[in-house]
Design a protein around this nucleic acid. Sequence first.
DNA 1: ATAACACGGTTGACGTGTCAACCACAAGAT
DNA 2: ATCTTGTGGTTGACACGTCAACCGTGTTAT
Lengths: 156, 156
Amino acid sequence: MDKIELTEEEIRIWNMWKGSFKRIFGRVVKDMSEHTGLSEGDFGVLDRLVQFGDGKLRQQELADSMGWDKSRLSHHLTRMEKRGLVRRKQSDTDRGVQVIITSAGKSGLDEATPIVSKAIRKHFLDQLADQDIESITKLAERTKTSSSLSSKDSPP
Amino acid sequence: MDKIELTEEEIRIWNMWKGSFKRIFGRVVKDMSEHTGLSEGDFGVLDRLVQFGDGKLRQQELADSMGWDKSRLSHHLTRMEKRGLVRRKQSDTDRGVQVIITSAGKSGLDEATPIVSKAIRKHFLDQLADQDIESITKLAERTKTSSSLSSKDSPP
DNA sequence: ATAACACGGTTGACGTGTCAACCACAAGAT
DNA sequence: ATCTTGTGGTTGACACGTCAACCGTGTTAT
């Protein structure tokens, strides 16, 4: 029979880890949103549109690259469309929908990118020691989903 | 003039870190919610009520211990009250509100606790090497808010 | 006494996430 | 021809978070 209860020490580890993430991630997102009005999701969408699609992507591809389901993306795009960051257009070739970044979306992204970089460096990278990099890498490897449907990489 | 842009490697570190957290944390929360119907917030509230208040706490103290603002807690308690997990009662002594765990809340907590422990061990602790503990501890120390208004520790 | 403020809490509006149901349409299977 | 199945996407309902405004009641300052 395995032991179940966590020791005080184990609980502290868990809480430190959870707390560190929420603090750091919250600071990065806050720096971005306060300066640009973009949320984490907004940035992810816009960044992928230019990185992987030269400004446009089919909705399902975008969802896959974000690791989002179609419903979540649909709701989010509706809000982004309302703010003029993207627009949707029925694809001519197939029966999908093209998501296209607007000029407003592009300038929002251009404005946000250096702010996000600076924030990630300040709140995260500058706080890491060399051995932390290895810990992060190993933990990511050990917990990755086997069937690598991993969302493509793009900060934040 | 400082460099601003992140290298590919730095972006990968960031994304691995973010991805690991979201995967692991998501698995823990999902294990709990699927087996007990409690959310992360529900568990935190119930656990603190018994750990720090022997079943009841003033609302503001509860909010402080969760690191939540009063509005967030108020909304959350309204939902929890509707499900019969807690009840609110005007304090006799001062002009605050007592949050009191119900028997349903207590049994939900009792049911959830071992599940949460098992999930944290399986998805998180078992994936850590010894040196990871030190990384986690150091990073938490380096990023803690100076004025230690830290939320009290209780998983998840 | 009244004005100013702080404290404890509620409320409404809105952005975000999740789930299940739905719709349109194409491609096979019967 | 109809029936199922799969794909791509939308919608509605509801839980969760955040922000700002508000309310009642004490405390303090004038």
